[in-house]
Amino acid sequence: MRLPAAVWSPGGMTSHDHHPSPHDQPPPPRPAGTGSPAAPSGPPPVSGEEAIALRGLTKTYGDKAAVQAVDLDIPAGSTYGLVGRNGAGKTTTLSMATGLLRPSSGAAVVRGIDVWASPREAKAALGVLPDGVHLFDRLTGRQLIVYAGLLHGLDRETAGERTEDLLGAMDLLEAAGKPVTDYSAGMRKKVALASAMVHSPKVLVLDEPFESVDPVSASNIRDILAGFVRHGGTVVVSSHVMDLVQRMCDHVAIMDAGRILAAGTVDEVRGEQSLEERFVELVGGRVESEGITWLGTS
């Protein structure tokens, strides 16, 4: 069941009235949930103002649907969290939204540009961090970021300058001359993130950006992302760490079994509960048990 109730209000469009810490706002009166009033008959047309708009996005493998008719509007200037269990379809959705995976049907629109009709224009506006992919790891960290910049059509000077800035911000300067093969998992994440940002995209789509990143680096990255949003950028993160999403995102969509269960501002979606409680309530799957009796008794 689709619940687009609160999604379509294009609130927080401009960059400055929006702060990426939504906690100090009181919860809105109407929580989005299974009991909310009848949804409008369909999603509104794409205005072109959304950072990313998905319409009926579907991916089927054989007769099994990995993602089913997903409608989602990600407002420009937001920090948008996409949460779900493993296998919920987050990565498939984000891949289709960024031109990595052709949808079976439906459309993905980035800043008014149809990703699958004019992929090159859309990709110029996107910065993508796919999860669990190899990097060109025989390059040094510095080379990798410059390479990404050049692929995006930056000239070498610009690519070089931005690379140094990014290396500094990611605390990678010391390792910048070493091949990426020798990096730890967290360092790889950071260098991949830097490669996704070097061309100064309008929308950053990050699949599990904080996995295996140490807490200090994670804080630094969150600061960088917050700054990016303050200057008009949009960040989309997928994660299954609810606390993180609740802390850094102003919008969230909960996904399960290829469908969006709820979407809107974090406060709308979670209501009185914590995001995690709300998530478990929506997705289900908690095992009721007394615990395993023999564990810890011998």
């Binding site: 960024t98 031109g99 990595l100 992929p119 090159r120 224009e121 990709k123 110029a124 996107l126 993508v128 796919p130 669990g132 992919v133 190899h134 990097l135 060109f136 790891d137 390479y147 990404a148 692929l151 995006h152 059509g153 490669s195 996704a196």
Partner: peptide
């Protein structure tokens, strides 16, 4: 290239 090829696919590369 394997999945490192994603860097090419996500870039506006001709």
């Amino acid at each position: 290239d394997n999945t490192a090829f994603s860097l090419h696919v996500t870039a506006p590369l001709r």
